[in-house]
Design a protein around this nucleic acid. Structure first.
Lengths: 196, 196
DNA sequence: CTATTTTATATTATTTTCGTATATTTTTAT
DNA sequence: ATAAAAATATACGAAAATAATATAAAATAG
C-alpha cells in the first residue's frame, strides 16, 4: 500500500508550484518531471500534454471553489450577507491563485486554455444565475432585473478581465475582478433605501 | 538634456527586474526589450548578447559591493567588529541578490558566466587577502596562518558554493555562503582565549 | 533640412521543447 | 523465484521559440 504521494500527485504538485512561481509558458514539461522526480514517459501516461495538465489543475481548483460557494449559499443567513461572503471568497481566491498566474494564463496560455477558463467561468456563473433567480423570487433582489441581462453582464465581465485597457487600470487582475463583482452585486442589490 | 532614463538604463532595469523574478534562462532578449519599450536593435547596440548584459549587471553589483566593503574596512574600529560587519553585509547581499538568482546563475547561465562569477569573486577575495595580511601584521589574526592557505581555502569556498552536494544541505546558496564565511573568519580569528 | 538615432519588420541560424519509440531496469504479484 | 506490469533512461525527429542580423521606414536632434 503506497502511503507516499503517487507519481500523478507528485507531478501536479510540482507543476502547480512551478506555475505559481514562473507562470505557464516559462515552465517546460521536462522541468516538471525533473523537479518531481518522475520520468517524462510517466508524465505522458497521465497527461496528454502540458495544457492537459493545466486543465486538470484548473478543474480541481474550480471544483473546490464551487464546493465552497455552495457551502456559503446553503447557510441560514440574509442573502446580502451571503453575497459579502462570496465576494470575500473571490478575493481570497484571487490572492491565492496568484495575481500573476491568472494574468499569465490569459496572456500566455494556448488559446484553448483561454476558452477553457471561459467555460469554467460560465459553468460557475450559471450556478450563480440560478441562485440569483431564486433570490429574486424571494424578494432579495430587484424583481425588474432581467436574469438574461445578468448573464450578459457576466459574460462581459469575463471578457473584461482579459481586456488590457481595463487591466492596466488596476494593480492586478484580482483587483479588477473584485471591482467588477462588487459593482455587479452591490449595484443591483435592494438595500434599505433602494428603489421599489 | 535627457532627464528621462536612457534606453540603456531602461534595458538594464527591466533585465534586472526580470532576472530577479524568473532567473536568467527563463527571460528572453525580446522580453527585456518589450518590457523596457526599447527595440531589439537598440539592445544589440549596447550589449552583444544576453550574457554580456548580465556581465555588465554583475559588474555594477560587484562594484557596489567592493565600495561598501572598503567603506567598512576603513572605519576606526576593532578588526573583529569589521569582520562581523562584513558578514552582515554578505548576508544582506545574499538576501537582496536573491537566493534564487544566484543559484540560477550557477546552474543555468552559460559556462562563461560561471567563470565570470569566479573571476569577480577572485578579485574581491584578493582584496580581502591584502586586508587579511595587514590585519595579520597588526596582530589581529594568528600569525602562523599562511596567507596562501587562505587563498586556497577561498578558492575552494567558491567552488563549494556551486557544489550540489553541499548546496542541498542548506535552504539556499545564501545560507551556505554565510556558513562558509562564518567558519572562515571565526575559525581563524584570535579571540580572547585563542591559541598563542 | 540633414544627419543620426531609433524602430519596425523580415529573415536565417541556433537552441529549446515536444512528444514518441525503444531498450533496460524496477516493481509487483503470484 | 519468476513472470508480468510499470517506470525509467536514453535517444530521436519534428515543431516551436529564441537569437542575432539586415534592411527600410520613422522619429529625433542639431
Amino acid at each position: 500500500m503506497t502511503q507516499v504521494p503517487s507519481k500523478r500527485e507528485r507531478l501536479t504538485e510540482a507543476a502547480m508550484q512551478l506555475f505559481l512561481k514562473y507562470g505557464f509558458r516559462r515552465v517546460s514539461v521536462e522541468e516538471i518531471c525533473d523537479t518531481s522526480g518522475v520520468s517524462k514517459m510517466t508524465f505522458y501516461k497521465y497527461f496528454s500534454n502540458k495544457t492537459d495538465l493545466l486543465k486538470q489543475l484548473l478543474d480541481a481548483i474550480a471544483e473546490k471553489q464551487v464546493r465552497r460557494y455552495q457551502e456559503i449559499m446553503s447557510r441560514e443567513c440574509p442573502y446580502s450577507q451571503k453575497i459579502v461572503e462570496i465576494i470575500h471568497m473571490k478575493q481570497e481566491q484571487a490572492e491565492i491563485l496568484g495575481k500573476e498566474l491568472f494574468r499569465d494564463l490569459y496572456k500566455n496560455a494556448p488559446p484553448d486554455i483561454t476558452q477553457y477558463l471561459h467555460e469554467l467561468g460560465m459553468r460557475h456563473f450559471k450556478a450563480i444565475r440560478n441562485d440569483f433567480i431564486g433570490a429574486q423570487k424571494q424578494g432579495h433582489v430587484r424583481s425588474d432585473v432581467n436574469p438574461d441581462f445578468i448573464m450578459y453582464m457576466m459574460n462581459h465581465m469575463i471578457d473584461m478581465v482579459s481586456d488590457p485597457k481595463l487591466l492596466e487600470m488596476y494593480a492586478g487582475s484580482g483587483e479588477l475582478i473584485n471591482e467588477l463583482v462588487r459593482f455587479f452585486f452591490y449595484g443591483i442589490l435592494t438595500a434599505g433605501e433602494a428603489p421599489a
